[in-house]
Design a protein around this nucleic acid. Sequence first.
DNA 1: AGGTTACTTTGGAAAGC
DNA 2: GCTTTAAAAAGTAACCT
Lengths: 194, 206
Amino acid sequence: MSSIPFKTSYRVENIVATVILEHDLDLELIETRIPSITYKPDQFPGLIFRLDKPRATALVFKSGKMVVTGTKSTQQLVEAVKKIIKTFVKNGVNVHGRPRVQIQNIVAGGDIHAYVNLEKAAYHLEDSMYEPEQFPGLIHRMRDPRVVLLIFSSGKMVITGAKEEVEVERAVNNIARQLYKAGCIVGPRLGEEE
Amino acid sequence: KLRKWQARTRIITSVERNLAQAMNELDRLSDILNLPSYVKEEAARIYRNAVEKGIVRGRSIESIIAATIYLACREMKVPRSLDEITRHTRVNRKEIARCYRLLLRELRIKVATTDPVDYVPRIVHGLGLPGQAVKIAIEIINKAKEQGVTGGKDPAGLAAAAVYIAAEQLGEKRTQKEIAHVAGVTEVTVRNRYKELAKILGLEYE
DNA sequence: AGGTTACTTTGGAAAGC
DNA sequence: GCTTTAAAAAGTAACCT
């Protein structure tokens, strides 16, 4: 195995998922029954429902479809969906059938714990662009897994576009290996081991 | 057959009309920005390329031409910031930057990162500083590069701070506000870059 | 000078303009 | 294409004391 002389890590920060119910919803009714809701049809067709315990926000549409954002794990996501539906039912908004939940995008923070020479990386990595005038990070579109990484000189990064957590892990290890092979690793950070 | 011929004629004239309009805009911006003819020609070449690849669809000619000019300047290393170009357009910087990135992606063009050094002569002359300041500022920037403290930072801010130090060393101090103005960044950015540069140069400041 | 807040970039879905 | 949501990274900017 090709060992990389530094460790890598990542943490999921946000999951975007769609939830499909088996029937339509009356948004006006939900708005009148549940106080903490935002609903401005002129501005956006969905109503905005925020949850506290699993911190999450749902965009609810009259078609019975919703978008749930803000959770950091599948566990939290499932918990949030259950609570949203429970809240609807408690307030007299009937919901039937089993909801179909699908993760659409995972955003994660990553770290290779070593400084990166972005200028050199931009030259060696295909499908990447580094424009410090516009943004401090290097933008790289990885083909496998198909995700986008924002890489910073500190070695920290943002991975987005993944649909499964394993893709995030693979992406971080892939980029670490590529940067190392291309000689873009400047040195360890935080006086850590190697 | 006649109908097909007419359709083709319509398409050709529409493309030609688009090109003529685009070239007019290119002429206008090139004059205002005092661009060398070779930059203008490169911008025109990129634009025709973009039209052929269908990248222009759905976007304003003004945005694409501005992005094309910025790209040509980057390729030819003629220092013209996005803000400078945006200033003479009616569209906002965000849209032009978006078109610029689109051109880089779709035409698969690689452009070298802007070197802070390229901004130095303009800042020095804009402040009426002696030519000697250029050489000193460039040396400072190169040291910063060696120390690896330039990653992710705006080249204009780095150049501004280097010129600030160069002026100081030549006994021709300029305020950070003056330098920030000619460099197109804020005083806060000049100050932040200055602190970092002073540190790696072993200079004292307070 | 400093501190806060806010905006830049990336990805994805929803319904409608 | 736009609108709305959430979240991270690091830099720059705007506004206030």
